[in-house]
Design a protein around this nucleic acid. Structure first.
Length: 757
RNA sequence: GCGCGAUUAGCUCAGUUGGUAGAGCAAUCCAUUUACACUGGAAAGGUCGGGGGUUCAAGUCCCUCAUCGCGCACCA
């Protein structure tokens, strides 16, 4: 017996060495799996999964550790089943998140803005930061024990992915699904960029609802929380059935509001809630999405009455009193609001002030209060019909569909199943409410929009058009793309698309996508959109969504709370195996969990328990080897041994039933149950009962019973190691090596051994 | 407003298709020339949020109420 077993199991002395051994074996790369068995290894059925690329904004947190544990368990299980198993690593440039972090750092340290540095210099700084983050992330992924194929690592902003992005953009542009449009978008004054509807978070704040008249001559009072926007009003809207206002519909009024001349037309629109405020509202097409849509419906904006913008990109007023007590122009919206209210009060127009609770829109990444502004931006049209060629039985035919319909079909008809199932309803709900996706961003870090302009001409292509003498120069669009545009391509851009690679043919659609439930819309939905549109195929067959990992008190882990728990610290203290088990056991799909250090400790003890189980079995087997097979210092069972005692046959069958149960849990992605069951068997049944009984047998039993029990214990230990390997890869691989278990059929690493069932 | 989830031992949570409640931690008692004290054994602890229904049988399915949490929409 190896002397190592005389001391407790020490993960710190083991894990890095074992990981290096796996790397040296090449088995993380499916092309390098053994080729000597039919239906296994390189000859196996493909299994593929992409790593949800972590943002290069810093380091991983417990949520990422949870994700890595779940995915590595799935991957190792598949590999042991003999599948040609590929797990693709990568990182996400996370455009706005990364740039704003670096900008903040530079501002803090050097007092310079991105405009002081310029585009090229800022990008250099961001790249350097991203590189550093990337390296930290790689270390963390390795420390977790992830059996991921580093030879295929990708980055959402590298050359190959950029080519995929340009290819995707051009195809959508040519199909008329990407267009440039002028409309009210979500503007983040802090980040100085547009953001999509999904990048907004809502915060409840106390606000004042003001009721007033625009002027003494206008008979209708309106209510608003943002009086400063009223300088841009173009209409007053009432409900068509509201008898109070019916007589005014269609009338037009002129007024000078806070120093700004306005023209108001009274319109009737069903979106107006008669019970709210006075039942009449001021329509501000330039600074409210809803009002913009209302303006479209009623054709409020014409050549004679152009759109009136009163707030700029810095959330400052561009009209209003230029001086005096009520100066408004050039003031921030919040200050301008006070000035407008003061003016209303002075004019005797203010009728009421009420305190209300209001949800305000905040940019998720920067914390800036979103200002709806009219802008010329690039959009993906989700409701526009386009021609799609039929596939399979419908080959040769065409049909008209929208992207929205494709996204829906992927889950209803094309067989993507989402675990837990309730997320399917959430997914459909989101699709119902989906509007065109604003994809252009006014930041520098990201994929540049592949469109060039020359005078009135517009060119979209994979590369810049050639300049011709005598004509103006082609200038590329300044904007970059929403980071999710490139992440949406991830399942196939990582496999080489748009090239027709062997990886594409073998591994796409991927087997499963495992990710956090919070990015179902950002990412999962967009991958489905991109894949069904660009490839005519689903990106994955199953989606497994995990919940949030919270701190010990149940609070969300966030930078502002400073409650981040560093996975590497826990790994150093308890070992990666223990951390993995503690994170996944008993945590069902979609459910939030809490980091519980006691639980991690319990699984560290379990690793040591397994260690001592091995020690007991080895020491019992030694000395009286009988027909046990000693091979190259290994102690292993006789695979042909069949003379089990009646008691051992029962034990063997009992374990087989449990293994079958665990296997069906694994196949249904109930890892959280499978892990608990194997744990329960090993400790409570195998160690506490079977090993204890064995002591009696070894002391008092017949020679046949003793031999049978030794065979059973060793055989079962081998099986336990295989069943436990996906969950606790390090300690199982270490024991496997120390007992020379692989010697039964030539030395093999446990990582490629057969799953027991 | 629409939808979803949760409510199980003192605490944190499992319980997959309905078949008489489990884990970790904590707490109680016992055991140290024991494979393991990173241990073992024993005992204790729950009318599974309330009420109603379906069923031979309900923590599990249906209805309803309550409390907490979340998503979406609204947010003039």
């Amino acid at each position: 017996m190896n002397d190592k077993f005389l001391k407790p199991y020490n993960p710190a002395d083991t894990e890095d060495r074992i990981y290096q051994m796996w790397l040296d074996s090449g088995y993380f790369n499916p092309d390098k799996l053994p080729a000597d068995e039919p239906g296994r290894g390189v000859n196996g059925e493909p299994f593929s999964i992409v790593l949800p690329p972590p943002n290069v904004t810093g380091t991983l947190h417990m949520g990422s550790a949870f994700m890595l544990a779940l995915e590595d368990i799935m991957v190792r299980y598949a590999r042991m089943q003999g599948k040609k198993t590929l797990w693709v690593p990568g990182t996400d440039h996370a455009a706005i998140a990364t740039q704003s972090k670096v900008e903040k750092d530079i501002m803090k340290k050097e007092g310079k803005s991105r405009h002081d540095l310029g585009r090229a210099e800022l990008l250099k700084r961001v790249d350097a930061f991203a590189k550093e983050s990337h390296d930290n992330i790689v270390v963390q992924i390795r420390k977790m024990g992830c059996s991921i194929d580093w030879s295929r690592e990708a980055f959402t902003l590298d050359e190959k992915r950029n080519f995929a992005v340009r290819t995707a953009f051009k195809k959508m542009y040519d199909d008329g699904l990407i267009y440039r449009g002028f409309r009210v978008v979500n503007w983040d004054p802090k980040g100085q960029t547009t953001i999509s509807d999904d990048e907004i978070v809502y915060e409840t704040r106390k606000a004042k609802l003001y009721t007033f008249k625009y002027s003494k001559e206008i008979p209708i009072s309106i209510s608003t929380t943002r009086p400063e926007t009223k300088l841009g009003d173009m209409a007053i809207a009432v409900h068509p059935d509201d008898v109070r206002y019916k007589q005014y519909v269609g009338k037009e009024y002129d007024a000078v509001f806070a120093g700004e001349p306005i023209q108001l037309k009274v319109i009737a629109d069903i979106s107006v809630e008669p019970e709210f405020g006075t039942g009449a509202l001021g329509v501000t097409p330039a600074h409210s999405t809803i009002d913009w849509e209302m303006a479209q419906r009623h054709e409020l904006v014409t050549e004679a009455r152009p759109l009136k913008t009163v707030i700029n990109e810095y959330a400052k007023m561009v009209v209003g009193f230029d001086s005096g007590d009520f100066k408004i122009k050039d003031k921030k919206t919040t200050e301008a609001r006070e000035a407008v209210v003061a003016w209303l009060r002075a004019e005797g127009l203010l009728e009421k002030e009420e305190d209300i609770e209001q949800n305000i829109s905040v940019a998720e990444r920067t914390g800036g209060v979103v200002e709806p502004l009219p802008k010329l931006q690039w959009f993906v049209a989700v409701n526009k019909k386009f021609t799609r060629e039929g596939k399979g039985a419908e080959a040769g035919t065409t049909r008209q569909v929208t992207l929205k319909e494709l996204m829906k079909e992927a889950v209803t008809a094309d067989g993507i199943s989402i675990i837990p199932e309730r997320f399917e309803r959430i997914y459909f709900n989101w699709i119902e409410n989906l509007r065109d996706w604003c994809i252009s961003r006014q930041i520098w870090y990201g994929h540049r929009v592949p469109v060039w302009y020359r005078d009135e001409e517009v060119y979209c292509g994979l590369d810049a058009p050639k300049n011709e003498s005598g004509k103006g120069e082609w200038m590329q669009d300044e904007d970059t793309l929403d980071t999710w545009f490139s992440s949406g391509l991830w399942t196939f851009s990582t496999l080489g698309w748009p090239e027709e690679t062997a990886d594409m043919a073998t591994y796409h659609p991927t087997t499963i996508l495992e990710t956090g439930s919070d990015i179902i819309f950002f990412w999962v939905a967009r991958m489905i959109l991109m894949s069904t549109y660009l490839l005519g195929d689903i990106p994955f067959k199953t989606v497994y969504m995990h919940g949030l990992v919270r701190d010990g008190k149940g609070q969300k882990i966030s930078k502002s709370l400073g409650n981040n728990i560093e996975p590497l610290d826990l790994i150093a203290k308890y070992g990666a195996d223990a951390v993995r088990m503690a994170l996944i056991v008993g945590v069902g799909p979609g459910n939030d969990s809490k980091v519980d250090e006691n639980k991690i400790k319990a699984y560290k003890n379990f690793a040591n328990k397994l260690w001592n189980i091995t020690r007991f079995i080895l020491s019992s087997a030694e000395g009286d080897m009988g027909p046990l097979v000693p091979k190259a210092a290994a102690i292993t069972y006789d695979p042909n041994f069949e003379s089990f005692s009646a008691a051992d046959i029962i034990l063997r069958d009992e374990f087989n039933v449990i293994l079958k149960d665990i296997t069906s849990d694994m196949d249904a992605y109930r890892l959280y149950l499978a892990a608990e069951k194997i744990y329960g068997y090993v400790w409570r049944r195998f160690a506490d009962e079977i090993l204890e009984d064995s002591k009696k047998i070894f002391k008092e039993g017949t020679a046949a019973d003793i031999l049978s029990r030794k065979q059973f214990l060793l055989r079962t230990l081998h099986t336990i190691l295989r069943a436990l390997h996906p969950f606790m890869p390090y300690v199982t691989e270490e024991i496997w090596a120390l007992i020379g278990a692989g010697n039964t059929d030539g030395h093999r690493l446990l990582i490629i051994e057969k799953w027991p069932v």
